[in-house]
Design a protein around this nucleic acid. Structure first.
Length: 506
RNA sequence: CGGGGAGUGGCGCAGCCUGGUAGCGCAUCUGUUUUGGGAACAGAGGGUCGCAGGUUCGAAUCCUGUCUCCCCGACCA
């Protein structure tokens, strides 16, 4: 069967991934290492994510604010683990002026900064400094803030959307009176992410706690949502951290309690990034490109008029316009339906394939015959082909299509989810006794393994991590909704305390 | 950051070894004929060969440096 992309997922998943990004006009290289240009269709998806996530964040009583891109180096020196975690990947600004020296623009040696500025890799330190000013009394708590921003981490190896040097994200930072409240907030954010991934992104995930060795630098506990890509690898799609009093100590975030005593705050931080878009591609994409879940599709219904450069065109355009405005009057997922009438002057069949590659959920073709018959030809992106391998275009009465459009979008959203959910469940094995045999070879799609373990720490944990490393696998998280442990630790034989997922990862 | 591969019109590539006017396919533009399952023919436009030095009468080609991308490793909220 002929497909829209030249590389299929089974041929070469990595090449396929890059081809989807290029062919769906999501992003392109920028000429700067690890940085990408996010094109309108890709950014449109991010805007959808922002809009829906922002509403969730606000609903939780968290307020948006904005902190500077530049962070004084000294801020990082206040917290040892945090510096160590980020020191190797920070971009540093050392000068504030350029000068032409021998015809070459060079940082002016005379403009060296007294104190170098770090381009934020994350904002715990600056926001902590602000919170120490904002919080005086128990009445100021909880302090719930969030910012939408770009951050820079000088990564050794980059991949579009999955790991870029600069990326866009949302970082929530909260301060609380005690551990219980902070932990509740940490888990609230995690649950918000789980629901967001499984709702708007139609991307099933496993929410759980990261093992000690995978924690955020400076955190007491780190939680994540992990999604399974179609090649069986795990993608950490969101994280939430309980930071204890570590950052409160470093930044002096204290409050006076009801008894007049001075207490340290317990803080949290949590974030999701443009990496989610990479996850959507690898969870929902097929050999014809992206399949964009309707809730995050910049356009949900694209109308392609079959224009032939003759006097029938006017009637077709009128019909298409009327259809578009009728559809725009509908709601789906509680919002007005997003409809694009694509009047670009290119051949309709090429236009159709361009939208297939971009993953528009519904592509509606209207031509003279439809105008005459009062029909539309409907292509569902999640069911592109008929059983015998032909493109599935259903001639439908216009009124019937309009009446069902919202429900159809809903159905596409849930069918994408169901398909991915089935794959995730089938991809987790709980009966594996020999990891080395299970993960032998690089080509197989092997998914994840869940084992019981005693949650060792220190050297014992290091030994396990090293053992897994030889198999190129890591511990993902200990699922919060897993069955209680009831056997021996997979690694040590001691009584297990929880179950943990293991797999290859992005 | 170490090892390997690669950078030549928008995309995919040839040319490089053995230096001598920069080519092919797709895409684009114009025209004609077409048109409901990725149209055909004819003509046309578009590249200082990633960038910077060097060797040479002459460099896409040889040498040095550098940037970017891909794969493997190390690293990685």
């Amino acid at each position: 069967m002929k497909h829209a992309l030249s590389t299929t997922r089974t041929q070469n998943f990595a090449d396929w991934y890059q081809e989807v990004i290029a062919e769906a006009d999501l992003a392109e290289e920028s000429g700067v290492r690890g940085c990408m240009v996010i094109r309108p269709w890709g950014y449109g998806i991010w805007e959808r994510i922002q809009k829906l996530m922002d509403a969730q964040i606000k609903m939780a009583g968290v307020e948006n604010c904005y902190f500077p891109l530049f962070i004084p180096l000294s801020f990082f020196e206040k917290e040892a683990d945090h510096v160590e975690g980020f020191a190797k990947e920070m971009a540093v600004v050392t000068h504030h002026r350029l000068k032409s020296i021998n015809g070459k623009l060079t940082p002016d040696p005379d403009s060296k900064l007294e104190e170098p500025l770090v381009v934020r890799p994350t904002s715990e330190t600056v926001i902590g400094a602000a919170m120490s000013r904002w919080i005086q009394s128990w009445r100021d708590l909880p302090m719930l803030t969030n910012q939408w921003a770009n951050v820079v981490r000088w990564e050794m190896r980059t991949r579009m959307f999955l790991r870029t040097s600069e990326f866009l994200w949302q970082e929530g930072h909260t301060a609380h009176a005690d551990k219980a409240e902070a932990m509740a907030e940490t888990l609230r954010a995690l649950e918000m992410y789980r629901a967001f991934a499984e709702g708007p992104l139609a991307m099933p995930v496993v929410a759980g706690e990261k093992p000690e060795n995978e924690r955020f630098p400076g955190a007491d506990a780190t939680y994540s949502i992990e999604a399974m890509m179609q090649d069986g690898k795990a993608l950490q799609a969101g994280t939430s951290h309980y930071l204890g009093t570590t950052f409160a100590e470093a930044a002096g975030i204290r409050y006076q309690d009801k008894d007049g005593g001075l207490q340290l705050c317990h803080t949290t931080s949590w974030g999701v990034s443009t990496r989610m878009i990479g996850g959507v591609i690898m969870v929902h994409g097929d050999d014809d490109g992206l399949r964009c879940p309707p809730q995050i599709a910049p356009q949900q219904i694209v109308i392609v008029p079959m224009l032939r450069d003759n006097d029938e065109d006017a009637a077709v355009i009128d019909y298409a316009r009327a259809l578009a405005s009728e559809l725009r009057g509908l709601t789906a997922f509680g919002e007005p339906v997003r409809v694009l009438l694509d009047t670009k002057a290119i051949k309709a069949s090429n236009k159709r394939w361009a939208w297939v590659k971009k993953g528009a959920p519904l592509i509606v073709e209207v031509g003279p015959r439809d105008v005459a018959g009062g029909n539309v030809a409907v292509i569902r992106r999640d069911r592109l082909y008929t059983a015998d391998g032909k493109l599935s275009s259903a001639i439908t009465a216009r009124g019937d299509f309009v009446a069902a459009a919202s429900a159809t979008l809903d159905d596409i959203q849930s069918s994408l989810y169901s398909e991915a959910k089935a794959r995730l469940e089938a991809g987790i094995r709980r009966d594996v006794t020999d990891l080395a045999a299970h993960y032998a070879g690089d080509e197989k799609i092997v998914g994840w393994v869940e084992v019981q373990w005693a949650r060792p720490t220190g050297d014992a944990l290091d030994a396990i991590v090293q053992q897994l490393k030889t198999l190129k696998i890591t511990m993902r998280n200990a699922p919060l909704d897993a069955a209680p442990a009831d056997g021996p630790c997979f690694f040590t034989g001691e009584p297990a305390v929880e179950r943990i997922l293991i797999g290859r990862t992005y």
